Computed example of a mutant assay.
Amino acid sequence: MADAGFPGRHTTTTQVTQTSVSPQLRYDQSYIQTIPGMLKIACIVVNLIGFICIQVSAFSYHSRGSYFSSIAMTGFWFTGIMLAAYLFHVCEKFYKIPWLKIEMYFCALWTILYLFAACFAATFGVEAFTAAALFGFVAMCLYGYDAFLKFNAVRRGEIAQGIRIVEQRQQQTTVTIA
């Protein structure tokens, strides 16, 4: 007589991951034509224009201007360095580093920080700060969309560059007790 607590059929699921990367550093301009590449370039441009708008104002020394400038320049440099890392396949060479998670957290944080920076600049009442606020809100949207794309990529188990194939294999086992 079969044990009532043990099923007669058992399914085992195994997950097989195959990663294919190239360890050579090389320049590859095709990244610029992808959506993440275009987003990075747009973020760099918007960060720089927002920073310039604040710096040409006579009130650039004000705490609101300093805060906006700090956010804009940190975003400019981080995004520029990440763009260079993707263009030269540094992310592919060091694929064990969770680049997508790092970028996702940075972009999510910068979305929030740009919301505050743009609101502070918009309420100051100076034309240059208002123009910077417009670029700040655009940067907020760009970083938010990039964070969303990175979140989806992390959830799917992708890597920043290279190819990762995830297969799920199922095996059924039938137990017969005599």
Rank of each mutant, 00 (worst) to 15 (best):
T19L: 05
M82Y: 10
V138T: 14
I71H: 09
I35Y: 07
F137Y: 14
I41M: 09
Y31E: 06
T19A: 04
A4L: 13
K101Q: 10
V90D: 03
Q18H: 14
F51D: 02
V90H: 03
G162I: 06
A2N: 10
G136R: 05
I35K: 13
A133M: 07
A84D: 07
T12S: 05
T123Q: 11
L25M: 10
W77A: 02
V154C: 06
V46R: 09
G50F: 10
Q161H: 00
R64W: 15
T12M: 09
R169H: 14
Q172W: 09
Y145E: 01
G80D: 00
Y105S: 11
F120K: 07
F76E: 02
L109W: 10
T176M: 12
T111F: 11
A153E: 06
T74I: 14
A85D: 05
H89D: 15
A139E: 02
F78T: 12
Y27C: 07
T11E: 15
T174C: 11
Q24M: 12
W110M: 12
S20I: 13
A58V: 10
T130N: 08
M104N: 05
G157D: 05
H10E: 14
H62Y: 12
K96H: 09
F76K: 00
I112T: 02
F59R: 04
Y31P: 03
Q170C: 08
W77K: 00
Q161S: 00
E158D: 10
F88G: 01
F59A: 12
E158H: 09
Y86V: 09
I35P: 03
G144F: 00
T123H: 11
R64C: 13
I163N: 12
Q168P: 10
T11H: 12
E92R: 03
S20Y: 13
T176G: 09
V166E: 08
H89C: 15
Y61G: 12
L134S: 05
M82K: 08
I81A: 15
